Amino acid sequence: MDEDLKITLEDEEGVLHDYFLVYSFDHPELDRHYTIYTDYIPDEENNISYYAMYHDGDEEEGLQHAVEEDTDWDFVNSVLEAFLGEDDDFE
Score class of each variant (00 low, 15 high):
4 D>I: 02
82 A>M: 11
84 L>D: 07
8 T>A: 13
89 D>E: 12
15 V>T: 07
70 D>W: 06
48 I>W: 06
68 E>P: 00
74 D>K: 09
8 T>E: 14
64 Q>P: 00
39 D>F: 06
79 V>P: 00
24 S>M: 12
15 V>M: 05
14 G>S: 05
68 E>K: 14
23 Y>I: 05
55 H>M: 14
37 Y>P: 03
78 S>R: 12
36 I>W: 05
7 I>C: 05
9 L>M: 15
42 P>N: 05
38 T>H: 00
6 K>D: 04
59 E>D: 15
88 D>Q: 11
6 K>I: 14
3 E>D: 09
52 A>C: 14
46 N>W: 08
4 D>W: 02
5 L>T: 02
57 G>K: 02
48 I>G: 03
4 D>V: 06
9 L>K: 15
76 V>E: 01
53 M>A: 05
17 H>K: 14
63 L>Y: 06
68 E>Y: 12
23 Y>T: 04
42 P>F: 03
54 Y>W: 10
55 H>T: 04
75 F>V: 09
74 D>H: 03
6 K>V: 11
86 E>K: 13
66 A>I: 04
47 N>E: 13
10 E>C: 08
32 R>C: 06
36 I>P: 03
41 I>P: 00
8 T>Y: 07
75 F>T: 07
39 D>T: 07
10 E>F: 02
53 M>F: 08
7 I>D: 03
68 E>R: 15
46 N>C: 10
5 L>Q: 08
7 I>A: 04
86 E>Y: 01
18 D>M: 00
74 D>M: 03
85 G>P: 03
45 E>D: 15
9 L>Q: 13
3 E>W: 04
20 F>G: 11
62 G>V: 00
40 Y>V: 07
21 L>A: 01
5 L>D: 09
41 I>F: 02
40 Y>S: 12
68 E>M: 13
86 E>G: 00
28 P>F: 10
23 Y>H: 15
16 L>M: 10
81 E>M: 13
60 E>D: 11
34 Y>E: 03
62 G>D: 03
41 I>M: 08
38 T>R: 02
82 A>T: 09
45 E>M: 11
14 G>R: 08
86 E>W: 03
38 T>P: 01
81 E>S: 10
16 L>D: 03
90 F>C: 04
82 A>E: 15
47 N>M: 09
58 D>R: 08
58 D>E: 09
70 D>L: 12
41 I>H: 01
7 I>V: 14
87 D>N: 06
5 L>F: 06
29 E>M: 15
6 K>T: 11
59 E>L: 08
25 F>V: 03
31 D>E: 14
5 L>R: 12
